[in-house]
Simulated assay, not measured.
Amino acid sequence: MEHITVGDTTVPALGFGTSGMDTDDERYRAVSAALEAGYRHIDTAQMYDSESAVGDAIHDADVDREEVFVTTKLLGENRAHDAVIESTHDSLDRLDTEFVDLLLIHSPDQEPSHEETLNAMNELVDEGAVENVGISNFSVEETRTAIEHSDAPILTNQVEYNVHERRDDLLSFCLDHDVMLTAYSPLGVGDCLNDEVVRRIADDHDRTPAQVVIRWLLQQPLVSPIPMSSNPDHVWANADVFDFELTDDEMRDLFAVGGDLDDDLASKLGL
């Protein structure tokens, strides 16, 4: 497993998402399969209703809790100071853990202010209930504001990011400010897998299209994809991406799927 270092924090580069599953049994089996396949970065949220299943799967796995990087996110209605504190402790109870490695604001378009929410999140860092803080679905300017309002570093901004849905301005900003970009929907809800460029490169490497688009993300600095699947075969296959590399030409071809790559970002990416 490759890792990303952000400040003083090391994060497993490949994560596993838990949104979109219907039952606790499905969530439990998926996370159990992910842990068995070698994932050590598990993403959940209060909104997903998956925290209990994630906690049970980690507890039952033959893996020490300290080896698993666990992320959860605040429900929009839990943005006020006291609600941040209370709901996070509820999340810890559901996850059956004394701390989470990362707590995110799930969406920027909620009241109260980011400053109030981040102040409460920082209090949780001070008490040891949260190791790191971050944000999700924030624009460049919203990310800048979050950085200004948080004593603890903003570890990541989690956004949709794949070959069809690029975030060049945000990735460039993250690279300049040492913020990880966590890529949810890295397969584009499956639509990226039928792209002819993706399929050609997959054939050239004798890999699946999903493995190619995940590898494309992993080869970008400070980018952590978090694919999600409840199919154990797909869970295992999506983790089997560390024994091949895409060439610079292939990386550029995959960027071209989503449009022209900004020259400044291309330079930062070494392309």
Rank of each mutant, 00 (worst) to 15 (best):
Asp206Trp: 07
Ser229Ile: 07
Gly190Phe: 11
Ala33Arg: 03
Tyr161Arg: 03
Ala34Met: 05
Met1Val: 10
Asn122Trp: 08
Gly258Val: 01
Thr117Lys: 05
Ser32Val: 03
Met228Asp: 00
Val159Asp: 01
Asp203Arg: 11
Ser32His: 11
Thr143His: 10
Cys174Thr: 03
Val179Gln: 00
Gly38Phe: 09
Asp203Val: 02
Asn157Ser: 11
Asp126Val: 00
Asp262Met: 00
His164Phe: 14
Ala120Gly: 12
Thr117Gln: 03
Trp236Gln: 15
Asp248Leu: 12
Asp264Pro: 05
His234Thr: 11
Ala237Asp: 14
Thr71Tyr: 05
Asp93Gly: 13
Leu193His: 10
Ser52Ala: 13
Asp249Ser: 11
Glu36Ala: 15
Leu271Tyr: 13
Val130Cys: 08
Val235Glu: 03
Thr208Lys: 05
Asp253Met: 07
Glu98Val: 07
Leu75Gly: 13
Asn119Gly: 12
Ala256Cys: 10
Thr9Ser: 02
His106Leu: 03
Glu26Thr: 12
Glu51Val: 04
Asp176Val: 07
Arg166Trp: 10
Gly134Trp: 04
Val197Cys: 01
Val179Glu: 00
Gly190Asp: 10
Ile135Glu: 01
Ser267Ala: 15
Val70Thr: 14
Glu2Met: 14
Ala83His: 10
Ser230Val: 10
Leu103Met: 12
Phe138Met: 07
Val11Tyr: 07
Glu36Lys: 15
Met251Trp: 01
Glu165Val: 08
Val70Cys: 13
Ile42Trp: 00
Leu269Ser: 03
Val63Ile: 15
Leu92Asp: 07
Asn122Thr: 03
Thr18Cys: 03
Pro108Ala: 09
Gln110Ser: 09
Met251Ile: 08
Pro225Leu: 01
Glu141Thr: 15
Asp263Ala: 14
Arg215Trp: 06
Thr23Trp: 05
Leu170Val: 06
Glu142Arg: 15
Leu75Tyr: 14
Thr208Met: 06
Glu165Cys: 09
Asp60Ser: 12
Asn157Phe: 05
Val257Gln: 02
His59Pro: 01
Arg215Thr: 04
Phe99Ala: 13
Ala256Glu: 15
Asn238His: 03
Arg166Asp: 10
Ala33Met: 07
Val198Glu: 01
Asp169Lys: 11
Phe255Met: 06
Asp43Ser: 12
Glu66Leu: 08
Ile201Val: 09
Leu187Tyr: 02
Asp263Pro: 11
Ala80Arg: 14
Gly190Val: 06
Trp216Gln: 05
Val198Asp: 00
Ala266Pro: 06
Asp109Leu: 13
Asp22Cys: 06
Pro108Asp: 12
Leu222Gln: 09
Ala13Gln: 12
Val257Leu: 09
Arg199Thr: 13
Met228Phe: 02
Leu246Phe: 09
Ser230Trp: 04
His164Gly: 05
Asn137Leu: 08
Val84His: 06
Asp195Val: 02
Pro225Arg: 02
Asp240Pro: 02
Arg167Ser: 04
